[in-house]
Amino acid sequence: MINNHKIILASKSPRRQELLRLMDLEFRIVLKEVDESYPADLNPEEIAVYIAEKKAKAFDENVTDEIVLTADTIVCIDNKILGKPENAEHAVEMLQLLSGRMHRVITGVCLFYKQQYHSFSDVSEVYFGELSDEEINSYVEKYKPFDKAGSYGIQERIGLIGIERINGSYTNVVGLPTEKLYQALAKL
């Protein structure tokens, strides 16, 4: 049933694209510019869903029989949201903050189908071991994680050597909770 749906992925994330491919889902990519600001009174889970829905609303009048899939992933530590780093120095600061601590990765997902919004979020707890300044600087220099919330990719070197454990979905930390996505698509 899921394969009968035509999916528009509204994301330039190569990680989300690869996860959909691994799920054997066919999709096409359509990108729209969206302001990712949000009201100050939202909690982190609400922020991720709010931005995902905002991205989906950019497609309101343009879609008839396809599912628009949008998502937004945020990293949260001590109720502070770590977005995408502005530069290498900012990336290093974020990774130093995450070193030796637990943080939450929250992904909001919105499926826009037949003029209705179907939204959900997923939360994973990620535990980093202590990272040396050399490990952090080397990672930032080589991988340039400037398109990643929290300045890291779990599937890259820093995740492979630094993450001690995860409570929750691995794919959520990558950027798309595939388990919940599959269940949501099956209900459409």
Rank of each mutant, 00 (worst) to 15 (best):
A58D: 00
F112H: 08
P85D: 01
A184F: 04
F59L: 04
V68P: 02
E86Y: 09
E179C: 01
V173T: 02
K12G: 15
K84T: 12
P145A: 02
N167Y: 11
S13Y: 11
L188T: 03
S11K: 13
D78V: 12
I106Y: 09
S124R: 10
E61H: 09
V49E: 12
K54H: 07
L31Y: 01
L95Q: 11
L9M: 04
N4F: 08
R165W: 13
L31W: 00
I158N: 08
V30A: 05
T70D: 00
S99T: 06
H90Y: 08
E89S: 15
Y170R: 06
E36P: 09
T64Y: 09
L82F: 11
E130Y: 08
I77W: 00
S11G: 11
V123Y: 00
N3Y: 05
G150E: 07
R15H: 03
E130L: 14
K57L: 15
K57A: 14
L181H: 05
P39Y: 03
Y113P: 07
R165Y: 14
P85C: 04
K54G: 13
E93S: 14
E130N: 15
G150W: 09
E45I: 12
G100S: 08
G168V: 09
A10Q: 08
R101S: 13
E93Q: 15
R16L: 12
V75H: 02
E89H: 11
F128W: 00
D60M: 11
N4H: 08
P85Y: 00
V49M: 13
I29W: 04
D65K: 13
C110K: 04
R28V: 13
S37N: 14
I77P: 05
L111V: 10
R21M: 13
M23H: 08
I29F: 01
I166K: 05
N3Q: 13
K148D: 06
N79V: 06
L19C: 06
L111G: 02
T73A: 09
A48N: 03
V92A: 10
L31I: 15
I158W: 07
Q116Y: 05
A184V: 05
M102I: 13
E26L: 08
K54E: 13
S37K: 11
E61D: 15
I166M: 06
Y113C: 08
K148R: 14
K12Q: 15
A88F: 07
V34D: 03
H118E: 00
V49Y: 02
Q116W: 01
Q183V: 14
A149D: 01
Y139L: 09
Y143N: 11
I154E: 00
E93A: 14
Y182M: 12
K144D: 09
L20K: 10
